[in-house]
Design a binder for these strands. Structure first.
Lengths: 214, 214
DNA sequence: CCCCTAAACTAGCGGCGTAAGTTTTCCGGC
DNA sequence: GCCGGAAAACTTACGCCGCTAGTTTAGGGG
């Protein structure tokens, strides 16, 4: 086969197929040959549309980030907006757990990630936070959500009773497969609320006290 | 060469060499052949001491986790202990940033990681937290530290002015190489203090109020 | 002393990302 | 209306990867 009547591939189709393979069979299952086969094509043909495999993975990662909802920053106060954003962010990662390890390391060259950071930063500054503080808050929340998604979806603890011998405070009961999910939920909720509570105190101290708001 | 007079390799030497390669040249630079060369040996010889490459990486990761200091749980109150632990944890990861992406995904089959989790959990329960809450707190802090280390050391933002076109709230000034470090520090400190502040409030509400302590 | 195991070796398999060069099709300009 | 170049598929192949299999020899226990 040479050049076909009409293109077999385009970036969108490639990204969708890649996401499907990753979602269904895990990140290591995605090779260029495997992905090409999924699209009815030979491996190197992908390089007519992307320069490297990492570029494909970046596009997949960004397509996930693009589903994060930051609309709350336009309508709600900063605390509620942060809460909505963090939960949406976590939900987006939970929907595609296998790409998370790549997504969280990746650099900032992704449009959706930049747009998200921009919206969050703008919302916080509008609420009265200093630009520097807004940067810190956005970063801290990203840290927490990224870490939460990564650790949670990595199936951190296995249900092997022998592992817990000699660790008197670790209860296997909290770790076995079924409970793991509720532990993750509880830890995320607790941590998020604690963060927001702490930020509210800092706000009262450093922003509201100076009458800088609107 | 057949079996040498005295062994050329042992697990300790392999782990140290692996850590050196990863620290110096990055995680992708570590291949079994490269590591073996570093030890004056052929690639497959490593498999006399480790079953898989991942087993080597797990050992490297655990050797880093082993440097985290949890002693504060024996002497300080729970808030101070959490603060010391989180900072030590972050310092340990910062000392070996290239292993972090592997470390944070990895499962709990690592002795040092289990021992750390056990100490933290025990310290919190001793302070009056319920076992379930203690699990959540330990997990939330791990999320935050892991996320912080991962995102920070990933060189998230490059200093390419074009990236910031169209994102009015993002200041390149906060992102260029030199500033990145202080942004990370600020975000970590702010987030950690906010978390601790929020947990203190929760403590007053759910633990101290019931007079459960000792 | 003998034999079994341990710890190195060499050879090689299948898979990976991707570079190079080929073929055919489409499209814009003379 | 042709024609030249870009586009998009192809085939081939290179060097690296993790790892297996089988071989050789040294060390240590019965």
């Amino acid at each position: 086969m040479a050049r076909p009547r009409q293109p077999l591939l385009d970036r969108r189709r490639i990204v969708e197929a890649a996401r499907a393979v990753i979602d269904g069979e895990g990140l290591p299952a995605l090779s260029t040959r495997r992905l090409a086969a999924e699209l009815g094509v030979q491996g190197p043909s992908l390089y007519n549309h992307f320069a490297t495999k990492d570029e494909i993975l970046d596009a997949v990662a960004d397509s996930v980030t693009a589903t994060v909802d930051t609309a709350a920053f336009a309508t709600l106060d900063w605390q509620e907006a942060l809460r909505h954003w963090a939960c949406s962010y976590r939900r987006a990662l939970a929907a595609h757990p296998n790409i998370v390890p790549y997504l969280v390391q990746g650099p900032g060259r992704r449009p959706a990630a930049l747009a998200m950071a921009d919206t969050v930063h703008g919302g916080l500054v509008r609420a009265g936070w200093s630009p520097a503080r807004a940067t810190h808050i956005g970063a801290a929340l990203r840290y927490f959500v990224a870490g939460s998604a990564l650790v949670s979806f990595a199936r951190g603890f296995l249900d092997d009773p022998e592992l817990y011998a000699g660790h008197p405070h670790l209860h296997q009961a909290h770790r076995i497969a079924g409970r793991q999910h509720s532990v993750d939920e509880g830890a995320f909720t607790l941590g998020l609320e604690a963060l927001l509570h702490g930020l509210a105190a800092e706000y009262d101290r450093s922003v509201a006290a100076q009458g800088v708001q609107r």
